[in-house]
Design a protein around this nucleic acid. Structure first.
Lengths: 227, 227, 227, 227
DNA sequence: TATGAATGAGACTTCATTCAT
DNA sequence: GATGAATGAAGTCTCATTCAT
């Protein structure tokens, strides 16, 4: 109890801040675990503190209330997802066939949802109950959608006046939902669903774009048939 | 609606049973209102009773606990949606062009979601927290998907070995999700999203089916261009 | 409602009263069952009515409240026990050896407790909570004790100034308690306890009385050894 | 009592733990009062908290539910009774005349029941409704009975194959019951009953044992007559 | 008289947040 | 700062009894 005060001011810089950061992370890790298991409302702040191995009082030094924890957690989720997707956001992406693009992006999202099963679940749970969280999500989504739209703009559309953002909006929402549903299905059907997600996304995109960049012309059949 | 007509006209109209049914309906109406407004967990049974204008004790005469209320509400939701969709389940449906089919079905679902904004919201909120409810939803979904799959089976598939149920599964989940998201968007974008739902549904189906029944051959462009 | 008034005054006498009596009995039977199973407080009046197969409203026509049911039940218990014991209350009883007397009376009580496991249990449960019931029990006990004391008075006491009622009081209470405890023990130990009840009753009585009536002189050992 | 002394005298006396212990005691005291007055079921947790002068929330920090309170109370009861009886558990006990032994033990029990009128009452009330409590009581009883049996084993039995535990079982149950009943009787009769309890116990023991240890030979009459 | 739906006070328990140490 | 015991409003559900039909 009263021990542990052995730290002197000579130690590596910002020990407090480092300790704080570590504690914040532990709290978010604990919250992620528990939220994905029991849901946001059913999880108590005390449980989070215990799981994070810090006193409940300390938790409230970092977060003013329970809602702030989910919000911080979702900021972290969004950063992470954005990071994963950014790895592919190179110029070359625009050159890939549509089917390859769809494949890559879908795989990244599937991976993310697999590693963070609470992401979608918690967000759905508190829809309409936490305007703050929705603002965070909307902003992050908007950013992702914008970037995806930029990617699409580099491709040759079949028709004029394509609303790239609408397409990006639709695909991001729809893929997320479907991936999440797939996660709770049995292995075989899950794999089938992942394939369908790609087919779905591709056929939707092909209704707007020829498959490649400015000149390529991969039809759906040829793409798909070759795989 | 037209059910429950087992009463012969000679009886004094069982005022008690009628009153009970009316009360159950009032409870479900109140629950629907409050759940869609505040969510399931944040709504108290007392609030429901007050909104339904009955004493709390009476509420518990009809429902053993709070969970039973949502469950009954979802049974009602499912019945209703099924009724709406069943109106179109005539033989002629199979003869319609794919685009028309998609239009009709989507419109029905949009209408349903507009009238019952709590349906999707509440279900998402309690995902993973109420196995009973999930069983109810899974059963209802399975039924709808099955029927939709039957519809598709009457059409000429482009390729062999089509998994009609998987297609029906994907489309029902994806359309539901996007309709729900659309509902919280501003009017103009909402309308645009409804159009996109039809577009992606159609393009997805066209990746499997030629447009008409056995002989018709409407491509996507012609369908869409004519609208 | 207005139906069922078909009964005319010509029918067999007291049909109503007979029906009432039957209903009262059914209520008491149901109450006995449920009380002995779950206890008085945990048993609801509705459960009693259901078990008795009568409407709850009818129950309240016969009993003003829940307490009145236990009270009536205990009046019935007491009548029954008194009847059982009265069968032996003949003049010859006084002539039996003490050990025989103890045997007979104990056996009767054991039998009664076996057939009515709720008797003791319920009485203990509501001790101090229902003055009315205690009055009933005290009166019945007093009567039994009085009669038992009368029996003892016919025997030749060893010492002067014997308080027959105190002896009867002690034995009745103590035997009842131990029989009840024995009922929840496993078969073998239960039988052993029944034997011990007889032994302590006899040894206690022998500290006051010579074994027989005026002249007999059975000591404990001889009594016991002969059995 | 003498436990928990692991605290070294240099520390600031852990005010928190002391405060906790005091609160637990206050809760148990309050529960004892109210249970013995109104019974377990009729006593509300709120009442207990008020009587203990702590907020209801604090009560639930120490006890997970109402049942845990009675259980803890009975652990305390059993400890206390065992302590009282242990004071006499010296070697000399075996040397005392039976009558003296009975006197002492009975007096201790009478004293205990006088100071804790709720002990018997509450236990009887919840018989069959709280398996947990019964386990606690059975264990404590078994311990007491075992010890009492050990005491008896040191005495010279009249007959062979005496089941010391059965005797101890019977006497402990029967004395408890009779003392409890005596407590609700008017003063004069109460005193008389206490005397009868001793007589009863002694005559029962004398049916098994000669009065003293190996050689002594005090008959009941001489013992009793001398008092 | 017979019925059973209706009533609502009140029981037990939880948990986000605070604040004395 | 750090700690975790303390707080009490509020939620879910029960049930003896009544009374309109």
């Amino acid at each position: 109890m009263s021990t542990d005060s052995s730290r002197t001011s000579r130690m590596p810089r910002k020990p407090v801040q480092a300790r704080s950061q570590e504690r914040v992370n532990r709290i978010l890790d604990a919250a992620e675990d528990l939220f994905s298991l029991r849901g946001y409302i059913a999880t108590t702040t005390k449980e989070i503190a215990i799981q994070a191995q810090i006193p409940i009082g300390s938790l409230y030094q970092f977060f003013p209330n329970k809602a702030a924890i989910v919000q911080a957690l979702f900021v972290r989720y969004n950063d992470l997802l954005h990071q994963q997707l950014a790895l592919f956001n190179h110029e070359e992406l625009a050159e890939l066939p549509l089917s390859t693009l769809v494949d890559k992006l879908t795989d990244i999202c599937v991976q993310f949802f697999l590693e963070h099963p609470g992401y979608y679940k918690v967000f759905m749970e508190v829809q309409g109950l936490m305007p703050e969280l929705e603002k965070i999500e909307d902003a992050a989504d908007a950013k992702l959608i914008q970037e995806f739209a930029m990617l699409l703009k580099q491709r040759e559309a079949i028709q004029e006046e394509v609303d790239y953002e609408a397409i990006a909006f639709v695909l991001s929402k729809v893929s997320g939902q479907l991936i999440w549903i797939a996660l709770s299905q049995e292995e075989r059907f899950q794999q089938q669903l992942f394939a369908e997600i790609k087919r779905f996304s591709l056929s939707y995109l092909q209704s707007y774009f020829s498959s490649g960049l400015k000149s390529a012309n991969n039809t759906y059949e040829s793409d798909h048939g070759s795989s």
